[in-house]
Amino acid sequence: MMKKQTIQQEHVFEQQLINISLCVNGQEQTIEVEATKRLVDILREDLQLTGTKISCEIGRCGACSVMMDKKLVNACLIRAYQVNGKEIMTIEALSQNGLHPIQNAFLEEGGFQCGYCTPGMVMAVKALLDEHPAPDEEQILQALSGNLCRCTGYSGIIRSILKMK
């Protein structure tokens, strides 16, 4: 019964702020945010990392793909309470020491056009190559199945990956 009352009192506050620590692109960050704020908004608004894009907000396009503890995830599906202590890598980390081979391949083979899906797509390719350095057909198609691109028809993207083999 005691608990119930506490809950009701707390519920008066509209937003529940929590402190989270996370490592983003190698930098430790401690921030106070709303518990249900989405990772994509934390990255774009609190940390000014706008390379991670917003498009469908339900995990059905891959534009916000980032790595969390070295695994590809949709930043729109993750909320602040889930990222405490996690290691996040965004597109911005990839070119910290010059262009990444994936980025060079995309440039040379037309792996993008409008570029809006590109950061997420590049992260998905990174996740693929981390797991399978020389991916076969099935692995490429599986790995990129969650990333939509409306411009290229995917052929330029596949050419880019094949070029890296």
């Binding site: 706008t50 390379g51 894009k53 911005e92 262009l99 993008f112 809006y116 590109t118 590049v122």
Partner: peptide, 11 residues
């Protein structure tokens, strides 16, 4: 291109 593949382009 470079700005697009690196995520640096500000839409």
């Amino acid at each position: 291109g470079i700005e697009k593949v690196t995520g640096k382009l500000s839409y």
